[in-house]
Design a protein around this nucleic acid. Sequence first.
DNA 1: TGAAATGTTGGGGCG
DNA 2: ACGCCCCAACATTTC
Length: 470
Amino acid sequence: MSTAVWWIRRDLRLTDNQALASALAQADQVIPVFVMDPGLWKAHEAAKRQAFLIGGLRQLDADLRERGSRLIVRHGDPRDALARLVAETGATALTAERDYSPYARRRDGRVVRTLPLGLIDSLTVHPPAAVVKADGKPYTVFTPFSRAWKSLTPPALNLVLPAPERISTPANVTSDPLPTQPALPATVPFVPGEAEAQARLAAFIDRDDPPVYRYGEGRHRMDLDGTSQLSPYFRFGMLSARQAAVAAYSAIESAPDGPSRQSAETWLNELIWREFYVSILYHFPDVLKQAFRSDLRDIPWRNNEREFAAWREGCTGYPVVDAAMRQLSETGWIHNRARMIVASFLVKDLLIDWQWGERWFMQHLVDGDPAANNGGWQWTAGVGTDAAPYFRVFNPVLQGEKFDPHGGYVRRWVPELAGVPDKFIHKPWEMPADMQKKSGCVIGQGYPAPMVAHALARERALAAYRRVRS
DNA sequence: TGAAATGTTGGGGCG
DNA sequence: ACGCCCCAACATTTC
């Protein structure tokens, strides 16, 4: 009997799992193992994401048990834990999905030196090393990257691997318990696991007149569910990028010509954005430490702690900013437009270092991923690859009026403003005094006045950015 | 995947 | 009927 170890990291799925398939192809028995790595697993950090991960592991264990297997959990440094497991079981192969983050590459590099680890490029549809210019250099602008990405052979439907029907796992392998804490709060609207991911993908794409056909407009609206809401599932590989891309291509093909097809193309583009930022982190690991653009590393940040606290708590006085920050703390997820609005407010209006915001997002986002999160923050701060120009400053009032036109989003997350009429919902401080009283929201009492005047803050930010550029 | 400032045009009110 | 002004609507430039 030969044995292989399937080392699970961020590929918590049985469907279309190439690392698992490789392990099954190499041995009669497969040991699915998750290592609780103290280098990644720090108490009191990113509790919602950790809880989602634990829930996903429990679900994976249940799915494995249906197939005659089970999840093995080990605590400790991965190299030591895996070496022990291999010694205990006589395993001759070890497979895992390759992860391109700097920490993962260091970790895997150490494992490879002592164990027969085979790494498989399935985190993305096209591995970062495959989407490069003719001279082998990486792209740093999205549009040419996406053109090169699309010119590669698209993944075929018949490549999406079905979940194995049976996985045979030796009976005598011991498992450490999964931590029971942190628990997933009821306010987090994501059920962990592969089944939920499949259901969401199907609901978004695989039915008559699916939401993906209206994604082009729907994705901008914060008061509606126009997006796929799949990000936490991509984060932990509960859904493979390849399966999602196949679904996107098939939606593009079957959509009627016009806005529907355009919408499906736009969704495919969002998958490519994810791979763009994976690629940026792979080729430029230093972006986790500093701005990609060396000429924008010394912006004179104000970094006011009290203002940072007001931002975190959703007490800025700008309804759309406060709604998003409260939703983030409560649920671990916010709309991408909301991410851009609050990021722009922190970086431009408050002149607080984008890395402070990056860290806060990583502590709260269920889908928090170093590559995408860092890419988004550098984009908003205007210091990254293909970044927004420094003078692009979001106006929180106009963004609210455009993308939450009736104020439904604000009213849901900032209940103090529930009685404010539509006309003032994004600028309640402009209500006359009697209207403030009538709507049950007196500015300065029930809800704060704007902590900065946006027009002035904008000028201040432009001046600060101009100073480092010159 | 921005917004503000500035420029241009054309319809309508009005003397 | 005509010229003038105002300003909304749209376009372009600038940050």
